[in-house]
């Protein structure tokens, strides 16, 4: 099932264009802002798009019906889809997380903070999974991306002081949202 979901994800051209644009934007921003992984604050938007697309693309051309007739055990299928997304996202996050600090090292000679790269990689991967879960709930790409960007760039700065560290917030919210999405997905009419 994971192989089927992987095959689905990598044969979607939007997966690759989103990742390519995200990396390009991150590299460009690093030259503009020129401080390590700061550009990730903006380029994480690309991972939101990737996550939402992974689940919302099911609702284009009636693909969801093909998916659910081929893999009718819905919770397992959804889990496989998220696992496949993680398999693709983890290395992509690492590349993006590493790109900024590497450029800074080459240009300014600042050493790469490996722990920070690992943290950023985990952050981006979890953010992608959360986005996929939101996509499952909303079933609409633009609505999903809009909502998540709104949360991250508009709402988050206001509530920031009441929340723990970004990564901790994600570590807690990811499983919660995944479970909520799975419960909704299991019961509803496709």
């Amino acid at each position: 099932m994971i192989r089927a979901e992987l095959s689905k994800l990598v044969s979607l051209p939007a997966t690759w264009t989103t990742l390519a644009w995200t990396l390009a934007a991150n590299v460009l921003l690093t030259f503009v802002i020129a401080v390590g992984d700061a550009p990730v604050a903006y380029s994480r938007a690309g991972f939101i798009v990737l996550g939402v697309l992974a689940t919302c693309s099911e609702y284009t051309g009636g693909q969801i019906r093909t998916t659910l007739t081929a893999m009718p055990r819905r919770v397992r299928q959804l889990a496989a889809q998220h696992a496949a997304l993680a398999v693709v996202t983890l290395p992509a996050s690492l590349v993006v997380a590493l790109s900024g600090p590497l450029i800074t090292m080459v240009v300014a000679g600042t050493p790469v903070a490996l722990w920070q790269v690992a943290e950023t990689t985990a952050y981006l991967t979890l953010l992608t999974l959360v986005s996929a879960a939101v996509g499952v709930l909303l079933r609409h790409t633009l609505a999903g991306v809009g909502l998540l960007l709104g949360c991250l760039f508009v709402a988050a700065p206001f509530v920031h002081e009441y929340l723990p560290d970004d990564l901790v917030t994600l570590v807690v919210s990811t499983p919660v949202l995944l479970i909520v999405a799975a419960l909704a997905y299991r019961r509803r009419d496709a």
Partner: peptide
Amino acid sequence: LDGSGAHRSR
């Protein structure tokens, strides 16, 4: 079922 059941960009 109706339509192709496939994503248009694949």
